[in-house]
Simulated assay, not measured.
Amino acid sequence: MMKVLLAALVSGACALIAPSMMGARRVAPVARSTTEETEGPATDDAAYGASHTSFYTTAEKQESYDALEYILKEKCKDEKLSTVVNEMLDAVARITEALRTALVTVEGSANTFGDVQLTVDVIADEIMWETCRNSAVVLEGASEEEPEIKECNPDGQFVVCWDPLDGSSIVDNNWAVGTIVGIWDKATGLIGATGRDQVTSIVALYGPRTTVLVALDDGVYEFTYGAEGQEADWICSRARVKISPDCKIFAPANMRAAQDLPGYKELLDHYMENRYTLRYSGGLVPDVYQQFTKQQGVFSNPTSPASPAKLRLAFEAAPFGNLVEKAGGLTSDGVSGGSVLDVVINAVDQRTALCIGSTNEVERFNEMICMIE
């Protein structure tokens, strides 16, 4: 069965690439009429037959799209928070432009974890640090490349943690990678806080287009950078995105752990035997981000003694967890079965197991891996 899974992994990756090669549609000038995405995918099992294993967007072309500034004015009542969101998206725009021209080469250095740093890692990290140090509202910053909290502005309000370019092992293949940002208020700080204390989180996906998910007052919004024909740099491409409780898409990380965890092997077999669609690239950002575009999905990354947890709680799991739960999904810490947002952050570089996505599938993971009845 594991050989079948690996074979499906290859074919699934190829299928993932094809839709992204379709030409972009021209859109109309910015206005104020963004459509909410509140309906999940069809749940009729007949729709998931062997001849229907691809999932396409349900977003329909609109005559106009709201600009970032308008959405923040309406959906982010905290002016300081609106400022930091604007600043983070400005940084993402700069990273986007840098990635278009930068070669992927070894920088000749390593981060705190001993990972080889690539030129693009360093560029993205420098842009994030420059943004935070020039901000009037960022009190402290911490980068996954150098997990140490550093002061940016003594009069600032927020603690910002980021993974500047998640997916360094696949960026040389020109696959989609991303930036992950978690933001805490100075009232809680980072150490001793939880992911639930975040005031917002942001995830950017760099692919054929650059899109960003942002947690705002009433849900999760997606913004697209530099859309053709738009007057604004950022337009709202999806409003109040929802993740369905059911899914037929799975992204299984850390499959080595299946050799140590019988429950994980059984779970992977369940996905294959029930003809779930495999969509896994090995990059956390694209593999979880698809849950918002497809409005369904589950990403699993359990831990075992021989295959320990690799995901960083503050830099990766907590920011994504905040977005997924605000969109109606569920998260698991992979051990107790509780939400990853309730795990106390005791160290900047703290690691965690993770399952995240459609509620019913995360609950299945808890039953089979965490033995939660």
Results as ranks from 00 to 15, higher is better:
residue 2 M to I: 04
residue 5 L to P: 00
residue 12 G to T: 00
residue 12 G to V: 00
residue 14 C to G: 12
residue 19 P to L: 05
residue 23 G to I: 01
residue 33 S to Y: 07
residue 35 T to P: 07
residue 38 T to M: 13
residue 45 D to H: 05
residue 47 A to P: 00
residue 50 A to W: 04
residue 51 S to I: 04
residue 57 T to P: 05
residue 58 T to L: 12
residue 63 E to M: 08
residue 71 I to A: 15
residue 72 L to E: 06
residue 76 C to I: 02
residue 82 S to P: 01
residue 83 T to L: 10
residue 90 D to F: 08
residue 90 D to R: 08
residue 91 A to K: 02
residue 94 R to W: 00
residue 98 A to G: 03
residue 105 T to D: 01
residue 109 S to N: 13
residue 112 T to F: 15
residue 115 D to G: 01
residue 118 L to N: 06
residue 134 N to A: 14
residue 142 A to N: 03
residue 150 K to W: 04
residue 156 G to N: 06
residue 164 P to L: 08
residue 170 I to P: 08
residue 171 V to D: 10
residue 176 A to G: 01
residue 176 A to Y: 01
residue 180 I to P: 07
residue 181 V to L: 03
residue 182 G to I: 02
residue 185 D to S: 14
residue 189 G to K: 01
residue 194 T to W: 11
residue 203 V to W: 09
residue 218 D to Q: 10
residue 225 Y to F: 14
residue 233 D to E: 12
residue 240 R to T: 09
residue 244 S to G: 15
residue 245 P to W: 07
residue 250 F to I: 00
residue 251 A to R: 00
residue 255 M to V: 14
residue 256 R to G: 13
residue 259 Q to G: 09
residue 266 E to Y: 05
residue 275 R to G: 05
residue 276 Y to F: 15
residue 288 V to H: 04
residue 294 K to M: 09
residue 303 T to A: 15
residue 304 S to T: 04
residue 313 L to T: 00
residue 316 E to N: 12
residue 318 A to G: 04
residue 318 A to Q: 00
residue 319 P to F: 01
residue 332 S to G: 11
residue 337 G to W: 04
residue 347 A to G: 03
residue 347 A to D: 14
residue 348 V to S: 01
residue 352 T to F: 13
residue 352 T to Y: 13
residue 355 C to D: 09
residue 367 E to A: 15
residue 370 C to Q: 09
residue 370 C to R: 10
